[in-house]
Nucleic acid binder design. Structure first.
Length: 511
RNA sequence: GGCCCGUUCGUCUAGUGGACUAGGACACCGCCCUCUCAAGGCGGAGAUCACGGGUUCGAAUCCCGUACGGGCUACCA
């Protein structure tokens, strides 16, 4: 449903709001709050991109908060991996566990005292009450309520316990949780979602949720609200799986006597089958894309486009353009399906945009990693690498494709069976190779133009098609039917090796 | 069950009542270029705007309903 009354988001740099008749400048503060239970995945990265872009667009602060309250699955390695992935993507944060900041600590496990403080405040204000129901009882009640239909939340039994009695039971050591006393008389909880417009929830449908467990730890909604409040977050930009949590968090803010932030809910990212994106759909972590040879700018661009558009026409959007143009108003409400092919195309666009120098910088680590080049050789072969760069960069979409494309330049490769059959087995192949070998041995200066000058006349002289002659040569020299341009390849291979390979291939060629 | 969200070419999207014979991009098909593969150029196919009602001179755009998909409904996050 389209909502034409979507609220204004803040103007770039800052926004001015009325506070007690006084104009104050509100500094934008957003946060990305991943749970270190795994690597940074595509969906989380997209949320991070939007938060980052929004902060940068408005000259605000981007906070990184680690939600590590699940001790079973949270690890420090994952935290570090998430940090690395964000750095690689270029999503720099202003405050976080690694860089600190005025509103720390930035790991939930280190913020226990803040939740305790908040609980005290809630008690003082009478916004919370102890609940002595056991998990088993609750389970039973839930099932009964479910069977009756309608509201399935807590039946508020303990809300009716007189204060003195509750106090006595607490002091006697009876296990209890703390529940939010939802103000039934309050009326609907309404907020203006910056992406979806007005969102309205009947107060009667909101549970007296547990804010602090019997072991004293805060529940998710409580921790989030307290964190966002104490970190002075102004805009909460997150997945739409949190829409239903929002009214609960707003109620917590209100119970604390605080002004809730603005909210913007992003649609989910799905796999090609319309299901939640998961490993089944292939690579889902940012790290995996780095390893596959994707450029950070390409992934950033693609992620930005997954639910946001600049103008509906522009698709190639670099970091600066994104920052200069990002707005929540242009975020779409529909879930988006992750399209690996479009990402790959975009990556190719950025690869082709690189200068030879930039490409060499990317290519060298790949070659070294593949064992084709030694790091010590790089300086000496710089000119050669610079000449190779444009030949390769125009033909690949991922950096990891480099290896297969240039291997023949670094080591002798066997001639591919299919290539031999399709090309060398054709009549005339041997004649072509012999003629080429002869023509090439006479080349004075071993460079592509001279090589081309020597080879160009061959087809006509031999009465063959150009393609037949050059493909035979290509297969002899590169081992396959697909390679960078022939004349340049010969130049880079060098005279000795080129002639040797042609000679070696001659016995395999048909007359 | 209750509450909430979503639905425009295969995919990402443009669209905010008349400029819509619904635009762009990826993918697909054809032609051109060409030593292969790419890249590039030109062209093509592809969307009854989920469905049904209404409002209006006029609706992809506003209203209501239905269907389908999704989320929340935990002492998970």
């Amino acid at each position: 449903m389209r909502d034409r009354h979507r609220p204004r988001e803040v103007a770039p740099e800052s926004s001015t709001t009325e506070h007690g008749g006084m104009s104050v400048t509100e500094h934008v503060r957003v946060r990305f709050a991943p749970s270190p239970t795994g690597h940074l995945h595509i969906g989380g990265a997209r949320t991070a991109v939007y938060n980052w872009a929004f902060a940068r667009r408005h000259g605000g602060t981007f906070v990184l908060r680690i939600e590590d309250t699940d001790p079973e699955r949270s690890t420090e390695e994952n935290t570090q991996a998430i940090l690395r992935a964000m750095e690689w993507l270029g999503l720099d944060h202003d405050e976080g566990p690694d860089v600190g900041g005025p509103y720390g600590p930035y790991r939930q496990t280190e913020r226990a005292h803040l939740y305790a403080d908040a609980l005290e405040r809630l008690k003082e204000r009478g916004s919370v009450y102890p609940c002595f129901c056991t998990p088993e009882e609750l389970e039973r009640k839930r099932e009964e309520a479910r069977a009756r239909g309608g509201f399935a939340g807590y039946d508020r039994t303990c809300r009716l316990i007189p204060q003195e009695e509750a106090q006595r039971r607490i002091e006697s050591g009876e296990p209890h949780t703390w529940r939010l006393k939802v103000p039934l008389e309050r009326g609907d909880v309404v907020f203006d979602d910056l992406v979806r417009g007005e969102m309205r929830f009947p107060i009667s449908a909101i549970d007296d949720l547990i804010v602090v467990r019997s072991d004293g730890t805060p529940t998710y909604n409580f921790a989030v609200a307290v964190d966002d409040a104490t970190m002075r977050i102004t805009h909460v930009i997150r997945g739409d799986d949190h829409i239903s949590n929002t009214p609960k968090q707003i109620l917590i803010y209100e119970a604390l006597g605080l002004e809730p932030p603005e909210f913007a809910h992003l649609s989910m990212i799905w796999g090609p089958d319309g299901k939640r994106l998961s490993k089944r759909h292939g690579a889902t972590s940012v790290e995996a894309y780095r390893e596959m040879g994707y450029l950070p700018v390409a992934l950033l661009n693609y992620l930005a486009l997954l639910g946001w558009s600049l103008d509906g026409e522009t698709t190639v959007i670099d970091r600066d353009t994104l920052v200069a143009n990002f707005s929540l108003e242009r975020v779409s409400r529909n879930p988006a399906i992750f399209d690996a092919e479009k990402l790959e195309w975009l990556n190719g666009v950025y690869i082709r945009q690189m200068s030879a120098e930039e490409f060499v910088e990317r290519m060298v680590p790949v070659l070294v990693e593949a064992g084709l080049l030694r790091a010590e050789e790089v300086a000496a072969r710089r000119e050669w690498l610079l000449a190779l760069a444009p030949l390769v960069s125009e033909r690949i979409k991922r950096l990891d494709e480099i290896v297969a494309m240039v291997r023949f330049l670094f080591e002798d490769v066997a001639i591919d069976d299919r290539a031999r059959e399709a090309v060398l087995a054709k009549p005339g192949a041997a004649t072509a190779l012999a003629a080429a070998r002869e023509a090439l041995s006479g080349v004075a200066s071993w460079d592509a133009p001279s090589i081309e000058a020597a080879l160009r006349p061959l087809p006509e002289r031999l009465g063959m098609k150009p393609k037949a002659v050059f493909q035979a040569l290509r297969v002899a020299v590169t081992g396959t039917t697909v390679s960078p341009p022939l004349f340049e390849s010969l130049e880079l291979l060098g005279r000795e090796r080129s002639l040797a390979r042609i000679e070696a291939a001659q016995p395999l060629a048909a007359e």
